[in-house]
Design a protein around this nucleic acid. Structure first.
Length: 812
RNA sequence: GUCCCCGUAGUCCAACUGGCAGAGACACCCGGCUUAAACCCGGCACAGUGUGGGUUCAAAUCCCACCGGGGACACCA
């Protein structure tokens, strides 16, 4: 096996079967993309699976005659490089490039069908200068801005995080409990694109996993309702609340403002509640994001000794401050309708506040403790009485509009994307802060703003960017006024890098632009994207956002970057994720050494549906190896010459071959790669029999079958397939041999087994012509001795005929 | 708690719009090869589709309930 690997690698290097850059290539294009790896150490089992699957698709389309672009690169910025630098003293760049070289060489040995002319790394200044360029374009368009806000802070990573990087209150990288910190940070205005991110998902329906679309929908979290203004005692301006149930306005019995909002502090000031409020706010601030998410926690709050006036009935509603209302959603204030909102009801019951039902139906929530959310005729609601929910909402919106105290409104859960990071190994933000001129963008002709070398810096996390301490780098003249000014010391979230890398592949060494629009429009959108479901929200949402911005800039003519998405499962061991600490780590290098590249790839592909996890304890790489040897042996047994006329070959074997090719093709196109492998195994088995005890090794059909096996196998086991191809008398590369053309005449069976049932039970089998007529088949079935016996003299009520496969006779 | 997906031989998995439950593989067992074992080759066998109802001439497939597993959402007003 090792010998075969050594033999073919140089040949493939020379022939470069997967180069996709020829401008005069007449083949139609396909873009197959694997999510690019982070270079932390060598490739592992997970990479092996992902790239084996992506390769099946890429190699299949090449066999089908497409000019397939299947590029690879490295998502090379990020914390692990920096942590390695701190721990071992290696410079982040050196550590990163070393790992990239190692992964690259492993991928080459793993025979990934990448176009090696297109390789690029996001940590190269030639790449990240375009991050900076995009940032400036967004800045110009008002899509990049700085604001002071309470942000997510990971105390371990010592940096801020985007909302998307906080999972269940924990940092998605290191699982530390995330805290809040008030900081001025850079944001990208992804919320401007919320509706388009939502609406354009229609294009992806059926081509992306439903699960991913659902997660994105949930994340964007669009809700429709109304904004209603409440006059507040002792305050000139009314306070606006957001509600999805304006129809329950008459059921509002109190009013709540987010404890950590500016409004709460303002309302509490100068009231008897001021001290209580201050104490409460202190306790609220103790809570981590984790605690806050615990919805089983008892409701807490402070009455602010103030009142809000219900605009529809003039009622005075007591204003409370509580942490169950979020400062940064809606307006940070709500009208509480305890009868029809569970959270409000919990609060009302905790503090003995009144509950008034305004929608008929169900029991009194005050007694049951369960708020009713059902539709029904409205009661206790003035003009809304008798109306159902939809009508009541329409009516109340009209009433509020008339009085100028409210209007329809939409809200999103999605927040703007916080991209500043207080770490070193990332893209510097191309802004200069000048005491006189304020924020000044770095002029585009001065890009890239290159990272200063790490060796002169202290990378230890201190909560502020290490770049700020690099005076020689940070202090520059202001581009506007020339006075000394300071560079922005933060670096960008590495998800910025991966939000557009799929565009860079079209001409990765272009130093005049991020990508050539005409090439991008020619190659993109990506026809097939392959990667893990861990990026269901983060990377995929950001990439979709970037694509839409680029569309608006007129740089691309499509609005969605990835037409089809396949989420491969994970490789696990004994039912759980592999990890060193769990002691169930399987090393890819060991497996490759023991079984060979082809067997490992085949095992990954054959293990089951690609979306499912592969449990390495359940699969058999040695079985894969055995099969490959069996297949390979076929190539040595064929004695007919190259170019033998298949048409003269054994018909039964020819049919089996064409059937197998046809079925495998169908299976590959529907992601059922394991089934495609099974069809190949089947063909190997019948070919073996044909050689040993059938048509014999000289029959041209045996050659046809063996060649088909080689081509089918080339998607999964490139070394074995190439070697077979040569032994069959061909020149390399089998990867370019072309998918066998299926002769549909050979798919037609000359006879079909027809099942004859009586009352649904199988009573007989008939060999019939595939084109037999229904009447003829029915007559034939009814004439069978077995049928007559089964009927036991009963009459026939009806006969269901599905020619040519089935007849079911229903007795009286 | 709500919603979604999945339960098929000892194991991993197949089964086109409902139409013979088995394509493929692992393990086991039995043969062959071998002085013997391993490797290798050949072969047999193994479930009636989580449970209980329903629809249908016919259900792994459709519907309902429950059990088990996985996932998404879960103070977003």
């Amino acid at each position: 096996m090792q010998a075969i690997q050594e033999r073919w690698l140089p040949v493939w290097d020379r022939l470069a079967p997967f180069a996709s850059g020829r401008p005069d290539d007449p083949r139609p294009k396909k873009y197959v993309l694997d999510m690019f790896p982070y270079p932390s150490g060598d490739l592992h089992m997970g990479h092996a699976e992902a790239y084996a699957l992506g390769d099946v698709i890429a190699r299949y389309w090449v066999q089908q005659g497409y000019n397939v672009m299947h590029p690879i690169g490295w998502d090379a910025f990020g914390l692990p490089a920096e942590n390695a630098a701190i721990k071992r003293g290696a410079a982040p760049a050196a550590w990163t490039y070393e790992n990239i070289e190692q992964q690259k060489s492993s991928m080459r040995r793993y025979a990934c069908s990448f176009d090696w002319d297109r390789v690029m790394n996001t940590c190269d200044p030639e790449y990240y200068r375009w991050n900076q360029w995009f940032f400036l374009q967004m800045y110009k368009r008002g899509l990049a801005y700085r604001k002071d806000s309470a942000v997510n802070w990971c105390p371990t990573c010592q940096t801020v995080l985007a909302n998307e990087q906080v999972v269940g209150g924990l940092c998605e990288r290191c699982d530390s409990v995330v805290t809040k910190k008030k900081l001025t940070q850079w944001y990208l205005r992804i919320t401007d694109y919320a509706d388009r991110l939502l609406d354009d998902m229609q294009q992806l329906e059926g081509n992306w996993p439903d699960k991913v679309l659902l997660m994105q929908r949930n994340w964007i979290g669009k809700s429709t309702g109304a904004e209603v203004q409440f006059a507040v005692s002792g305050r000139a301006e009314p306070v606006t609340v957001y509600t999805t149930r304006p129809d329950t306005l008459f059921g509002a019995t109190f009013f709540v403002v987010a404890a950590d909002s500016d409004l709460a502090a303002e309302l509490a000031a100068g009231t008897p509640a001021e001290a209580d409020f201050a104490a409460y706010l202190d306790t609220v601030k103790q809570f981590s994001e984790m605690d806050r998410l615990d919805s089983s926690r008892d409701k807490s709050g402070v009455f602010l000794h103030r009142y809000a006036t219900n605009p529809v009935n003039g009622e005075q509603l007591p204003i409370w401050a509580s942490d169950y209302v979020l400062a940064d959603y809606g307006t940070g204030a709500i009208m509480a309708v305890p009868a029809h909102d569970q959270r409000d009801l919990d609060f009302a019951r905790a503090f003995d506040l009144p509950v008034r039902m305004v929608v008929e139906g169900g029991e009194d929530p005050l007694l049951t403790g369960v708020a009713t959310a059902d539709d029904g005729p409205h009661i206790n609601s003035g003009e809304l009485n008798g109306l159902d929910k939809a009508d009541a909402i329409a009516a109340i919106l009209e009433i509020l509009a008339e009085r100028g105290t409210g209007k329809a409104a939409t809200n999103y859960r999605l927040r703007d994307w916080l991209i500043s990071r207080q770490r070193y190994w990332g893209t510097p933000i191309p802004i200069i802060h000048c005491a006189t001129c304020g924020e000044v963008p770095v002029p585009e002709d001065q890009l890239p703003v290159v990272l200063p070398p790490a060796d002169s810096l202290d990378l230890t996390p201190k909560g502020t960017s290490p770049l700020g301490a690099a005076d020689g780098w940070a202090v520059v003249p202001c581009p506007k006024c020339g006075q000394p000014a300071r560079r922005d010391a933060d670096t960008m979230d590495t998800f910025v890098d991966s939000s557009w890398y799929y565009l860079r592949y079209v001409n990765p060494r272009d130093d005049a632009q991020a990508f050539a629009p005409e090439l991008a429009n020619q190659w993109l959108p990506v026809d097939q994207y392959v990667g893990g479901v861990t990026h269901a929200i983060l990377h995929l949402l950001y990439s979709r956002f970037f694509t839409k911005v680029l569309f608006d800039m007129g740089l691309v003519d499509f609005t969605e970057p990835f037409t089809r998405l396949l989420n491969q499962g994970m490789v696990v061991m004994d039912g759980s994720a592999m990890s060193k600490s769990r002691g169930n780590l399987v090393r890819l290098s060991d497996e490759l050494l023991e079984h060979g590249v082809d067997a490992v790839r085949l095992t990954m592909v054959f293990a089951g549906p690609p979306e499912d996890d592969v449990d390495w304890a359940d699969v058999s790489p040695s079985g894969s190896k055995r099969f490959l040897a069996r297949a390979w042996r076929l190539s040595g047994d064929v004695t007919s010459p190259v170019g033998a006329d298949f048409e003269t070959g054994d018909l039964a074997l020819r049919k089996a071959t064409h059937r197998a090719v046809h079925d495998a093709q169908l299976a590959v196109e529907t992601y059922r790669f394991n089934v495609a492998v099974a069809r190949t195994m089947e063909l190997v088995n019948v070919t073996r029999k044909a050689i040993d005890s059938g048509a014999g090794p000289a029959d041209p059909a045996v050659r046809e079958a063996a060649e088909a096996v080689a081509v089918m196998l080339s998607l999964v086991a490139p070394y074995t397939a190439e070697d077979m191809w040569q032994r069959l008398g061909h020149q390399p590369c089998v990867a370019l041999a072309g998918w066998p053309v299926v002769d549909s005449a050979l798919l037609v069976e000359e006879s079909v087994t027809c099942i004859v049932q009586v009352a649904g039970k199988v009573k007989d089998r008939l060999e019939v012509a595939p084109n037999i007529g229904a009447d003829q088949l029915e007559a034939l079935a009814l004439a069978q001795q077995s049928v007559i016996a089964a009927l036991e003299g009963r009459g026939v009520r009806s006969v269901i005929v599905k020619a040519p496969k089935l007849v079911n006779i229903v007795p009286e």
